[in-house]
Simulated assay, not measured.
Amino acid sequence: MGHWFHTNIVEPGKLPLLLALASFVLTFVITRTITRLIRAGKGPFRNVSSAGGVHIHHVVPGVVLALVGGFGAVATGREGAAAALFAVVFGIGAGLVLDEFALILHLDDVYWSDEGRKSVEVVVLTFSLVLLTLGGFSPLGVNELTGDERQNRGVFVLTLAVNFLFVLLTLLKGKFRTAVIGTLVPFVAIVGSLRLARPGSFWARRMYRRRPKARARAGLRAYRHDRRWNRAVRRFQDVVGGFQERSPLRVGHGRSDDGPPDPR
């Protein structure tokens, strides 16, 4: 195990990336645990993150830590104790920021709402991409080229262009997650680009406008796909993000209007 770790992680310079990923996941888990305890009114945690009556979301220190860790990592390189330290700092900051990704996206405190599920989705997607990178995958299939093919600029550029085209087609067909994963695993993008587009996507609006049978097939396939997977995805998000919990308590971490309490 030690030999494998040194050969595949330490020697290629991937240790900072592994430390950043570990601190990222750990920070997200700890943050979600604390916010769920605050929401339920349990434990020693209280909503003390305020200054001058203004609530400070944890995305704020997250941005600061991510900037410190990112600039520090660029300045120190990929080796040494300093690089490892800044990788951990960056991972902590990224975990805090992406835990409130939905808040940044909607410019509203949607932490416990359905819109807040986007934060969990982005965290899982980020974890998957970094894990693939640790596994040796490179953007647009560069890792699949031999040394001679990389030296041949024509083959290199053509490979990048073709794989990018598949990713772009997948994105135009409304399959964002598939397109993102496809940047590291080209086969996923190829499959996504060849299958029917999702209803409402740019591709469906343009290409299926005069093809009622294609529109019907696309709608039926999307319905079956969503019916099969959405329930499992929501259950996973409920377990990870705590969306199933309900509490009448208000501890000052939600909306300040007279609507339903949002006691995070």
Rank of each mutant, 00 (worst) to 15 (best):
V167I: 06
F156G: 01
V233M: 13
D114E: 09
R211H: 15
A66Q: 01
G95R: 00
L131I: 06
F86G: 00
Q244M: 10
F236L: 13
D109I: 02
V74D: 00
P139R: 00
R177L: 15
A218R: 08
N143S: 13
F24R: 00
V142M: 11
V110H: 04
G69F: 11
V155Q: 02
P61L: 06
I30Y: 12
F166H: 10
L105T: 12
N230D: 14
S138H: 13
G91S: 02
G219A: 14
G52V: 13
G43I: 06
R205W: 12
Q237C: 13
E144W: 11
D238K: 03
L184P: 06
G219L: 14
G80K: 00
L96Y: 02
A40V: 05
V239L: 13
D114C: 03
R205N: 14
M207R: 12
A161D: 01
L184Q: 04
V240G: 04
R217D: 06
L37W: 02
A83E: 00
V68C: 08
G182W: 03
V48W: 15
V188A: 05
S138L: 14
L165R: 01
A179W: 02
E149K: 00
A75T: 00
R150N: 09
V74W: 02
G135Y: 09
L26Q: 08
L105C: 07
V185F: 12
G43L: 08
V60G: 03
T76P: 08
A66C: 03
K42E: 15
W112L: 08
R209W: 13
V123I: 15
G141M: 07
L98P: 05
F137L: 12
L158I: 14
P212K: 09
F243K: 01
L129F: 11
V162I: 15
D226M: 12
D108C: 12
L131T: 10
S193M: 05
L194G: 11
H57W: 14
K173S: 08
G200E: 05
P248W: 08
I104T: 07
F176Q: 02
D109F: 09
A87T: 06
E115H: 13
G95I: 09
G70R: 01
K173P: 10
R209C: 09
L131H: 05
G182S: 05
L17M: 09
E144N: 10
V167H: 00
T170E: 03
L129I: 15
R234Y: 15
V130S: 02
Y208I: 03
G52E: 12
V251C: 02
T7D: 11
A218W: 04
P261L: 09
T35S: 03
F164K: 05
G241K: 01
F202C: 01
V10R: 10
T146Q: 07
G69H: 04
L103A: 07
I104L: 15
L158Y: 11
Y208W: 10
V188P: 00
V25R: 06
